[in-house]
Simulated assay, not measured.
Amino acid sequence: MKLTREFYARETLQVARELLGKILVHEINGAKLMGKIVETEAYIGSIDKACHAYGGKHTPRVETLYGMPGIAYVYFIYGMYHCFNVITKEEGFPEGVLIRAIEPIGDLDEMAKLRFKKDYNELTKVQIKNLTTGPSKLCIAMNINKENNQQDLCTSELYIEESMDKEKIQIIEDKRIGINYAEEAVDFLWRFYIKDNICVSVKHRV
Rank of each mutant, 00 (worst) to 15 (best):
E27I: 07
L65C: 10
D109W: 03
G70T: 07
K36H: 04
K137D: 09
A31N: 02
D48Y: 01
T132P: 09
T59P: 00
C51A: 12
K146M: 12
K36M: 06
F7C: 12
L108Q: 04
M111P: 03
L20D: 03
E122M: 15
I71T: 07
E39K: 01
G92I: 08
K146L: 15
G30Y: 08
V97L: 13
P94H: 12
I102L: 09
T124C: 07
V86Q: 03
I44K: 03
I105F: 04
I77V: 15
E110K: 11
Y120I: 14
G45H: 02
G79L: 08
H52K: 02
E95R: 03
N130S: 13
T40P: 04
H52R: 03
K22W: 06
V86G: 01
A31D: 05
I105M: 13
N145H: 10
P60I: 00
L98C: 05
R115V: 13
Y66S: 12
A50M: 00
I87C: 08
V38E: 05
C139Y: 08
L33D: 04
Y66V: 11
Y75E: 14
Y78F: 14
K117I: 11
R61P: 06
L24F: 10
V97K: 06
L65V: 04
Y66A: 11
K129V: 08
H58R: 11
E95T: 14
Y8G: 02
N85Y: 00
M34R: 03
F116E: 12
D109H: 05
R17F: 08
G67S: 06
E95P: 00
F84L: 07
L13W: 12
V97S: 10
F7N: 04
V86L: 01
D119L: 15
C51D: 07
A31V: 03
Q14M: 14
I87H: 05
S46Q: 06
T59A: 01
P135V: 08
N148E: 12
P104I: 09
L114C: 05
